[in-house]
Write a protein that binds this DNA or RNA. Structure first.
Lengths: 203, 203, 203, 203
DNA sequence: GATGAATGAGAGTTCATTCAT
DNA sequence: CATGAATGAACTCTCATTCAT
């Protein structure tokens, strides 16, 4: 038995694999953004991804898994963005740091508004997945960590409030057809700063 | 897709009639709150209402109409609540009036949290109905009117921001399992007041 | 026990009865002509007749009975028309008499083209009713009688052929949107006369 | 009501595919012939074809499309038959050519009498489809072409009359249970010839 | 008798998922 | 492994008919 090289043969296969997986996810995201959960059918996704329905089921065991992957991806992106944002302003005043993180979240919401909203609705509509819920928690934990460093009281609640406030305003603005990103961010930062003012312990 | 007529098909003439109509709506609300749009099937609603599927379709021309009726009812309730709240504090300072209206909204959100959230998701998922959209507009117009009386600049945007902020925080609190209503209201009012401070023209 | 007059009390009731029956039939005829068998629903008929669905079922035991009554009425009318036509030309040459009868049939077909066609389709689509079939036979028997008087061979077949030829041409003309009655009748009579020429024994 | 697409949904790529398509059409034809439009339900067709309801809808987008395919097939067959018949007697006298074409039509009517009749009723009952109507027109155009070659006046009307006359007589004969094909054809040809005699310009 | 609210079998259609090829 | 034909439970909605009032 000759020792045949195994890696070379496997690598391209994995590369193709990865490409197919991504194509499916991209197609699903586009459809979800455009047509909502109602329009997201597995056959439609497969066709849009240029993949047979059988292949789709080879990569994702069921429809939920596709939505789950989409959510995971989106949350992971967000987490990375927020971490980067926080690092960039490390050591500055509380509002500055929190606002930087909020801005990271807003950027994602704005960039793919339709998908982000549809994804959240989908998550609420579907049976809860602990793995995905955990990712959401980690996003908040990120903010909680910063708040704790500044000795903010009840940082969990504050983190939740700040993110919810920002997301609520952003969604409403997008739905209302507000065009510019900057003015919205300014208003949200004003609200966040105002809220934090009543929370930060006097230095 | 043609916009289906959302108005109830038949005006209740007999007493039994009215009861059936209400039973259907109540059942639909319960199911929507408990199982989301996915679980809301016409047969399921009929069974839960203790009514035959035929009877259901005698009162609502299609499934959408049921959701529409639910939304209309909820919006009309809200509108009435906000009007009452505003009247009760007429003439007081801006934050007081706005917070009163916001509190009316929060009360509704809290009282029937699951239904309120599910209804909003349903609305987003469904083809837009002008009649229902108009009711939503009227809720905001209510706030806009008050803001204009106090010479607030760009009252539409401010109204939207304030409501969105409050709703966002409330939803997040409910989802996180926060129990008490009072502390949440206090935090939200702090945020609203803080936000308004940067908006009110100096008296 | 006083011998109360029974007739007077019953007569008006029967009169109203008869009126309701007719209203239902008229409404059904109109709907059948306009919307075909598919559009003929009992509820629709009742509403169009200004009668409750319950009342409709008091007069006709089921939907089929309504269609049956419509067919019976139409056949009876036809029979009367043909009898009158035949009497008016009694004693004249064969083609004259046959053409008079054919003209009676054509007049009915033309006057209520849509209804006549819809009725025939309905009859074919529905389970056969011996009572109605018998009426159809009597229409042919009418022609058969005349043919026999003129010693035509196999009068049943000839009667059938003549009527079928005329009806076929008339239906096609109506469907094609032919407007005038006279030219059509002329063409049909030409065909009938031509056909009969090969059938009549030399006088 | 929008005119639904009548073309088959999917072109058969695998052999199995083609078989399923055909099985569905055959089953539908059988049921239509036996039970009429009323008995033609998609579930019934699927079961009779030995196919799941899902498969049926993979090949035909809706029930109408099945009927449409049946009609198209029947008309195409007829067209081919008439073309062949006309070619076989090219150059002969007018009545000979016309009778040949009529005979082609009669052969079809006789071979699948029940289906042919049911199909025609179905067509009348259903919303008109331009594609199918065009095929019907082409059948008549075929006859019109021949008539024009012989300088017949108003060939459209004559073509319509001749076909209608033949079809009417044939339907009536079939319905009456006439067994032999030959005597019927003879009578019809007599009628057609008689009718044409009044139409052909003297050579 | 009249009314019309109620019934429910059953129609057309969709779509997540499986499995022979 | 990929393909796509096939499956069938489940969904929305209709309509002939019944029956309490």
């Amino acid at each position: 038995m000759a020792t045949a090289p195994l890696e070379p043969r496997k690598a391209p296969r994995q590369a193709r694999s990865r490409h197919t997986r991504d194509a499916i996810l991209t197609a699903a995201g586009g459809i979800l953004a455009a047509n909502g959960l109602r329009g997201l059918t597995t056959n439609h996704v497969a066709r849009a991804a240029g993949v047979s329905i059988g292949a789709l089921y080879q990569y994702y065991p069921n429809k939920q898994a596709i939505i789950g992957a989409l959510l995971t991806q989106s949350r992971a992106d967000l987490l990375a963005g927020m971490e980067a944002a926080a690092e960039a302003v490390e050591g500055e005043a509380l509002e500055v740091v929190v606002c930087a993180m909020v801005r990271a979240r807003l950027r994602q919401l704005f960039e793919m508004a339709a998908l982000a909203e549809a994804l959240e609705r989908a998550e609420a509509e579907l049976p809860a997945d602990p793995g995905i819920a955990r990712l959401r928690t980690r996003v908040q934990a990120q903010v909680v960590g910063v708040l704790a460093e500044y000795y903010v009281d009840d940082p969990e609640t504050v983190a939740r409030d700040v993110l919810a406030m920002a997301e609520g305003m952003a969604h409403a603005a997008v739905r209302a057809g507000e065009a510019g990103f900057a003015p919205l961010v300014e208003r949200i930062e004003r609200a966040v700063t105002g809220y934090l003012a009543g929370v930060v312990p006097e230095a």
